[in-house]
Simulated scan of single mutants.
Amino acid sequence: MHQIWVAVIQGIIEGLTEFLPVSSTGHLILSGNLMGFNGEKADTFEVVIQLGAILAIIVLYWKRYLTLLRIGRRSQTGRDDHGLKLGHIIVACLPAMVMGLALHKIIKTYLFSPYTVLVGLVIGGVFMILAERRIKRTTAETVDSLTYKQAFQIGLFQCLALWPGFSRSGATIAGGLLIGASYRAATNFSFLIAVPMMVAASGYDMLKSYKMLAASDIVFFGVGFVVAFIVALLAVAGFLKLLERMKLSSFAYYRFALAIVYGIYLFAR
Score class of each variant (00 low, 15 high):
132 E>H: 02
196 P>C: 02
148 Y>R: 11
110 Y>S: 10
153 Q>P: 01
153 Q>F: 14
175 G>W: 04
186 A>H: 10
120 G>W: 01
167 S>I: 03
83 G>A: 14
106 I>A: 13
157 F>A: 06
182 S>R: 04
98 V>Q: 07
122 V>R: 00
81 D>W: 09
146 L>F: 15
94 L>Y: 08
74 R>W: 04
139 T>G: 07
99 M>C: 12
115 Y>W: 06
152 F>G: 06
173 I>L: 08
153 Q>N: 05
104 H>Y: 15
148 Y>K: 10
126 V>A: 00
163 W>R: 02
160 L>Y: 12
87 G>R: 14
149 K>Q: 09
116 T>L: 10
96 A>E: 11
105 K>M: 13
181 A>E: 10
119 V>K: 00
175 G>L: 01
189 F>A: 07
136 K>G: 02
189 F>V: 08
89 I>D: 06
79 R>H: 10
186 A>D: 08
84 L>A: 12
108 K>N: 15
193 I>W: 06
94 L>K: 07
156 L>A: 05
79 R>C: 05
191 F>M: 06
91 V>E: 13
96 A>I: 15
106 I>R: 12
112 F>M: 12
191 F>E: 04
96 A>K: 11
105 K>I: 13
196 P>E: 02
158 Q>K: 12
108 K>G: 12
129 I>K: 01
119 V>L: 02
152 F>W: 11
139 T>C: 09
156 L>R: 03
194 A>H: 04
130 L>N: 00
186 A>N: 08
155 G>L: 05
160 L>I: 10
186 A>P: 05
122 V>E: 02
104 H>D: 15
157 F>M: 06
89 I>Y: 10
160 L>R: 09
173 I>E: 05
137 R>A: 04
139 T>E: 12
147 T>H: 10
141 E>N: 12
81 D>F: 09
82 H>Q: 11
81 D>A: 04
78 G>W: 07
188 N>A: 07
179 I>A: 05
111 L>W: 14
79 R>V: 11
92 A>M: 06
166 F>V: 12
146 L>M: 15
195 V>A: 05
151 A>V: 09
192 L>Q: 02
90 I>W: 13
76 Q>I: 13
168 R>G: 08
170 G>R: 03
95 P>H: 07
73 R>S: 06
118 L>C: 03
144 D>W: 15
132 E>G: 03
156 L>H: 05
142 T>A: 13
169 S>H: 00
105 K>L: 11
109 T>L: 13
74 R>K: 12
80 D>A: 11
114 P>H: 03
187 T>G: 10
161 A>E: 10
133 R>P: 03
125 G>N: 02
132 E>K: 00
118 L>W: 01
141 E>W: 13
115 Y>E: 07
77 T>R: 11
101 L>T: 11
166 F>N: 04
174 A>R: 01
183 Y>S: 09
195 V>M: 01
132 E>C: 01
105 K>N: 15
155 G>F: 07
195 V>D: 01
